[in-house]
Write a protein that binds this DNA or RNA. Structure first.
Length: 274
DNA sequence: CCGTCCTCCTGGCCGC
DNA sequence: TGCGGCCAGGAGGACG
């Protein structure tokens, strides 16, 4: 499940292949993945346009086009963007194909088909609500310790729910939320306004650290995630808790517990996390 | 405002 | 071996 580090790795691996290339032809095999506008408008709007850059905020990717409009992509659970030579064997679960100048195809593949694409900008006032409401990203200038403390104090919810809320912090998903809590020594069920100043400080540092580590390791490949070149990330080996239910805590050896918080499996160490 | 439950979806895994 | 059932979860919406 691509979170900030995985989406960033997709951006980095994709950029050199498609920057400056023109989309000559599109093929939409699963229309409902086009969130906005209609499929014909989407196709007509992107064909003949040159991709000038790719940006990312949170888990959203934005392919900038040379007419000022842009394609906004969300990979959700199992979406992937793959670059393959034209008329190479097509990838499994292929849902959308962008044929580019220079003999390459950009494929959007998706097993569970939750991924979305939109065409925005120009004269079209439509905005993606999820994107518009994104909070600051970890490691950004806006994501200060003060910002986090303020938000934590002013909300009354379980910390796991808080970390998954993209309005509060953009880019964390289930993996990095659990990892940040493990590193900060905080239980997923703790209420945000009951955290000590020390815990808030530790959490701010932990969020930045787990994201930085994920970026450094080119993302976490647990099941399906791969970058535009089909490469896996190797951050899985560094995870403290995610996917390690029942296994010994890497710090104290206690068996890790799994509970459900905010509808998500949440793994933590009952000894190290208070 | 917040939690819970539900929806979208399918591969993979478990138990019988 | 085969099959039913359950699990994985990003985001958004209904409901209490």
């Amino acid at each position: 499940m691509p979170e900030l580090p995985e989406v960033e790795q997709v951006r980095i691996s994709l950029l050199p292949h498609i920057k400056g290339k023109t989309i000559c032809k599109t093929e939409v095999r699963l229309p409902r993945m086009i969130k906005h506008p209609s499929v014909p408008e989407f196709m007509a709007g992107v064909e003949g346009k040159r991709v000038t850059d790719i940006t990312r905020k949170g888990k959203y990717l934005t392919l900038m086009l040379d007419d000022g409009r842009y394609i906004m992509v969300h990979l959700r659970m199992t979406g992937a963007l793959l670059i393959l030579p034209r008329d190479f064997q097509e990838p499994p679960f292929a849902k959308i194909r962008f044929s580019l100048t220079g003999g390459l195809d950009l494929w959007f593949t998706d097993i569970r088909t939750f991924g979305t694409l939109s065409l925005c900008g120009g004269n079209d006032p439509w905005q993606d609500k999820g994107y518009a409401g994104l909070g600051p990203e970890p490691l950004s200038q806006e994501f200060t310790e003060e910002y986090l403390k303020e938000k934590l104090k002013n909300s009354h919810q379980m910390i796991k729910s808080f970390l998954l809320d993209q309005h509060k912090i953009a880019g964390l998903g289930n993996i990095y939320a659990d990892e940040a809590l493990a590193m900060a020594g905080i239980r997923p069920t703790r209420f945000t306004d009951k955290l000590t100043r020390m815990q808030m400080r530790a959490l701010h540092e932990a969020v930045n650290l787990v994201i930085a580590q994920g970026l450094k390791n080119h993302g976490t490949t647990f099941r399906n995630y791969q970058d535009a070149d089909g490469h896996m990330g190797n951050n899985k080996d560094f995870l403290m808790v995610y996917g390690r239910k029942g296994m010994p805590c890497k710090t104290c050896g206690t068996a890790l517990k799994q509970i459900k918080v905010a509808g998500r499996g949440s793994v933590y160490c009952p000894h190290c996390q208070k």
